[in-house]
Design a binder for these strands. Structure first.
Lengths: 191, 191
DNA sequence: GTATGTGAATTTCTTCACAGCA
DNA sequence: TGCTGTGAAGAAATTCACATAC
């Protein structure tokens, strides 16, 4: 998907699997196999139509509809995420922001009033958002996720550096910024 | 590593592979195999000493020394990363900040003066940082990475949503915040 | 000629299962 | 008894290679 956008902004209309492979580092055969899993998008002799491919992928990934998102945590990271335009541009909209810090509740972030975490069930009964972003300290993360799930959230992006347990059917993706640098440190150290 | 810290803050001194497995979702056999690759840290019948394990891992990953980091991009994301305390606490220190925006150059971020991207070689000749964080738009990313590498940086954390090409021996880790939500969208859509 | 889609071969990763040790 | 470390088995992913289509 990221690669499709790259091709589009470079005004490339048609791309072969090997061209895409070179851009992404993926093996060409692998790429063809992955794409063919969802259907036959390519034209033998020519390659893949970039725009059509983008639309197919968008439909497959559910990106053809807008998604509402709950944000929990209005600290440094939460603020940055709220003001990160990449998501807004791609059809993700923050519809409510929560925090436990009394001094933050009532303030504004991402055009939303910051609410108490306790109100999450009440507020999402109305919003019906199915996605949540967790930008709170490690200690609070599991509790926050439990509350998100209870309020009806099905998919969660977790920035807290801790493993989260959820019941089957709920998806959690962890983005541990701390461990990213740790991994880099490992590669530096190795050689 | 993240799990070790979790165990430590829960005051657990000794952990078996199955306990760690339950916390992380990793298979117990897998975990033992991974750890045994670096040496024999465990005690049959008892498990792993959490503190000793942490120290071993820190040494293996090169976390026993402090790392200096160059930050490129002083926008929303760059600012958030600069003020993100997680890294400072773990021995990573931002020693210089760069941007191309004239209005930002000269300002302060993370206790550093924001410098022009063109000065990167000169400044890192003195700093000798080996790690870089890229928080710039897609279009600028490859150029920024090239300049970082030219200045002596060996490991790069890239937040721009694009694949980056570097010569062998240089490590790039991509953290594409946009695609994270896209993947969540996919899981939502699937069921 | 060029590039897809895919069965077959290969490699890699994961899990099992158990000998050996505290 | 309980748990590690590891060879062997099994599963999964990757790559090759080619028939087929443009």
């Amino acid at each position: 998907m990221q690669c499709v956008r790259g091709l589009q902004s470079d005004n490339i209309a048609m791309a072969s699997s090997s061209e895409i492979a070179a851009r992404t580092g993926i093996n060409a055969a692998q790429l063809r196999k992955d794409l063919s899993y969802f259907g036959e998008f390519g034209t033998p002799g020519l390659g893949y139509d970039v725009d059509a491919l983008g639309e197919h992928l968008a439909r497959i990934m559910g990106l053809d509809v807008k998604h509402d998102v709950l944000l929990v945590g209005a600290g440094n990271l939460g603020t940055a995420l709220a003001s990160y335009m990449g998501w807004t541009q791609r059809g993700f909209r923050i519809v409510a922001v929560f925090d436990t810090d009394e001094s933050k509740i009532g303030g504004m972030l991402a055009n939303c009033k910051i609410s108490s975490l306790d109100e999450i069930a009440k507020i999402n009964a109305r919003c019906r958002a199915q996605m949540g972003v967790v930008a709170v300290p490690r200690e609070a993360a599991q509790d926050v996720v439990d509350k998100l799930v209870a309020s009806g959230v099905k998919s969660i992006l977790n920035f807290a550096p801790t493993g989260i347990l959820v019941r089957a059917g709920i998806t959690v993706r962890n983005v541990d910024l701390t461990s990213q640098l740790e991994v880099l440190s490992y590669y530096l150290h190795k050689q």
